[in-house]
């Protein structure tokens, strides 16, 4: 059952009925809204204006848009300076390059310096598609969540990305938002609440055996899987863990205490990612049998987004197969 208080789309399991958009689009909208609300909001880009949606901001606020060229290390240092001075910079590129290329600049000039730079990592995950392994960031959750002071958010759909963008614009903290290129169903609505650090149980079963904790596009796929498994008598609940840092230890612990087995699902390496973060919590507070849906210690490759999502098990079917194997 979907959780009614969350005001999700009223025909949520009818995928064809849902609008589709990439989380980068919701981010692009949110950034313009944030800039309308606050003069201090700025956008910095490293030669990827269109694909990060920075160009929407640039059209409206050309004087607050800064182009740094293909120079992600400088991108981050300049953003740090702007934030230190009192601006609210959003620094964007592909996640493979930022935070991929400029991790140390993020560590020292943003996180340790503790200035409110918003780091926008676009084109994360294998769903980037034909560009191949070099461009498919699968390590960024790990490298960002390990940094003290850093907030890490992985929106589950375009609308949540919009709200998350507005939230990090005002949180006065170093923040990382992870975005995808592929269009995915928008299953939340304007009325769906969003708060950094507050996970949502989007699908609730009676006496669930399995609890899925998912982020990004895997949240909706997990809901579809839960609905189908429920029909086969396998009760599954699903949590959208869009804030990976700070971790809501209490809610994760309570969620796990009501199930036999926790499955985490993310378009990221299983080592160090969201699943690992959940495991760190559960090992301390509620040791639970766990298994991980993610990239199993390998890089991605070229292909269409759909082919790759299917190949690596990041679909409803992949999740169902994984769970049945766990129960067998």
């Amino acid at each position: 059952m979907i959780t009614t208080e969350l005001k999700l789309h009223n025909d949520v399991f009818n995928t064809d009925a849902l609008d589709k958009a990439a989380t980068r689009d919701g981010f692009g909208k949110g950034l313009v809204e944030a800039a309308e609300k606050d003069q201090r909001v700025m956008a910095l880009c490293a030669d990827l204006a269109e694909s990060t949606r920075a160009h929407w901001f640039k059209e409206k606020f050309p004087e607050r848009y800064v182009e740094v060229g293909v120079a992600e290390q400088n991108l981050m240092a300049v953003a740090s300076g702007l934030a230190n001075y009192g601006k609210i910079p959003f620094a964007m590129s592909y996640a493979a390059f930022s935070p991929g290329r400029n991790w140390e600049q993020i560590r020292s000039t943003v996180a340790l310096n503790d200035v409110p730079v918003n780091i926008v990592g676009a084109h994360a995950g294998v769903s980037v598609g034909p560009d191949g392994a070099t461009h498919q960031a699968l390590e960024d959750i790990a490298t960002m969540r390990v940094l003290p002071n850093m907030i890490v958010v992985v929106p589950a759909d375009s609308e949540e990305a919009r709200k998350a963008t507005l939230a990090i614009a005002v949180n006065d903290k170093p923040s990382y938002i992870r975005l995808a290129r592929a269009k995915t169903p928008i299953f939340t609505t304007l009325e769906t609440p969003f708060e950094i650090g507050v996970p949502q149980i989007v699908y609730q079963s009676k006496n669930p055996r399995i609890g899925i904790i998912a982020c990004g596009s895997l949240v909706y796929q997990s809901m579809l899987a839960a609905e189908e498994l429920g029909k086969e008598g396998i009760n599954v609940s699903v949590m959208n863990l869009s804030t990976i840092k700070p971790m809501n230890e209490k809610m994760i612990t309570e969620f796990a205490q009501n199930v036999d087995h926790i499955v985490t699902a993310e378009e990221h390496q299983i080592h160090g990612g969201m699943g690992s973060a959940v495991a760190e919590v559960l090992a301390q507070h509620a040791p639970t049998k766990m298994s991980f849906i993610g990239m199993h210690d390998r890089y991605g490759e070229s292909g269409s987004p759909d082919e790759l999502l299917e190949h690596f098990g990041f679909t409803k079917k992949g999740i169902i197969d994984h769970i049945k194997k766990q129960l067998a």
Binding site: P130, G132, A133, S302, G303
Partner: peptide
């Protein structure tokens, strides 16, 4: 080129 399973990856491997 750029297709699933190809030796001709979108960026050279």
């Amino acid at each position: 080129l750029r297709k699933f399973g190809s030796r001709l990856q979108g960026h050279p491997e």
